[in-house]
Amino acid sequence: MPGDPLPQPLPTPALRPSACPGLWRIVQALDGGISRIKLDAGTLSAAQAHAVADAAERFAGGVIEVTNRSNLQIRGIGADHAGLVACLLDAGLGPRQAAGDDVRNLMLSPAAGLDPAMLFDSRALAGQILESLQTCERFHQLSAKFAVQLDAGEDLAMLTHPHDLWLSALRLDGEVWLAFGLAGCPAEEGALGAVPLADGHALVLAVLQRFLDLASAQQARMRQLLAECGREAFVQGLGVALRRDHAVLGWRRPRRDQARHLGVYPQRQTGRVAVGAAAPLGRLSAAQLRGAAHLASSLGDASLRMTPWQSRLLPNLAATDAEQALAG
């Protein structure tokens, strides 16, 4: 009887030119190749962390970095690019289409769903946005650097990274709305309008479609397009009902103490905390990542969250286990 079919090699995707690393696009550096793993909301399971550590040792020099957009990258990759990609895909760390991986640039708070100050749990809306980015072929035309931020009002949120589109939660008339801005930061500029939370996904789709309708081949980022057409003209053509009164246009996102991503961070869930730690320059060895994964499995919910401060959080620990996790 015939045996099981032999595994087929991954097809080599037709990657568009870019200097930006991705899971599929391995960019050469002095110490070897770099592959960037764009995580869903900065989160990976303990099993996925072990897979990244194994891949870094097997196919590269064992160096893993946390990026300033809550992702991971592996450095020093050798010649077996296909083996590395297959290993990471088997762990569920990216889409099977290279074009879908390029545009997975959505940043949330590392405490999404956990933060005591959040106005809503942003993870469901983030899942809708990521699904659209990955599966809509037209959105695959976006630059590999085109980035979206979704902020649900968490205290633990990066507010000073510029994004092509940012959305930030605020409360109006007792309901949660999403303010938005273009080519900037929620802590440094006013909103251009707001929509009810239920219309957040539609707003994102409208902004992305309008950008692609208007942008030339040389205008890869929102700031480049706005330099020509202006914010007001862009917003007027969105085709989405926006609230633009003083309560929205005069609103500013409060700043928070960003050092709170280190140490013990209280969660919204009673008796639960997250514990944060950073390696120098955000660089982890495979052993360090495995150690963090072990702590997450033994004390937490077997997940880790990377932060835009190049640190990592272990969420959903019992408060009584916080000191043990910090020691680990």
Results as ranks from 00 to 15, higher is better:
V207M: 02
W177A: 12
Q224T: 09
V52C: 04
W177E: 06
Q149W: 03
A278M: 11
E232D: 06
H140F: 04
R96D: 15
V148E: 01
G3A: 12
S216W: 05
W24N: 04
L304S: 07
D80E: 14
R252D: 00
M158H: 10
R223Q: 13
H201G: 06
L203K: 13
A47F: 02
L84N: 04
H81D: 15
L88K: 03
Q236P: 00
R283M: 14
R253A: 08
R75W: 06
L313E: 02
Q310F: 07
M158R: 14
G174V: 06
V66G: 09
S311A: 15
T67V: 11
G328M: 02
I37S: 01
S311Y: 09
Q73G: 07
L156Q: 08
G42C: 06
L133F: 05
V195F: 05
A183D: 12
L130T: 00
D257E: 14
T320L: 14
L313D: 04
A29T: 14
G276T: 05
G3C: 03
L299W: 01
A278K: 15
S216T: 13
D80W: 00
P315F: 08
L238P: 08
S216N: 04
I74S: 09
A318I: 00
L289A: 02
T320S: 15
F211P: 06
L212C: 09
E154D: 09
E131D: 14
Q236N: 10
A206P: 14
R36E: 05
D164Y: 07
L192S: 11
D31E: 07
L133K: 03
D102R: 15
P116V: 06
Q258F: 11
V52T: 01
R243E: 13
D213L: 10
R243K: 08
A112C: 12
C20T: 13
A277D: 11
S45C: 05
L295R: 05
V176L: 09
E154L: 00
A49N: 03
D199E: 14
F234C: 10
L10F: 00
L44A: 01
A191K: 10
P5F: 05
L197G: 09
R123W: 06
Q324R: 15
G250H: 03
A220C: 15
P5Q: 11
R96T: 15
L262I: 12
A56N: 12
V273Q: 10
V207C: 13
A302E: 04
R260T: 11
A47L: 01
P116I: 05
H246Q: 14
R268S: 14
W309R: 03
R75C: 11
G230V: 10
L197H: 07
G193F: 00
L30A: 14
I64W: 03
P110T: 00
R305M: 09
I74P: 09
V148Y: 07
D80H: 01
F120S: 07
V264H: 10
A179K: 05
Q73V: 07
A191F: 12
A46Y: 02
P308E: 02
Q8L: 01
A29Y: 10
G237C: 12
R104Q: 07
P254Q: 03
L212F: 04
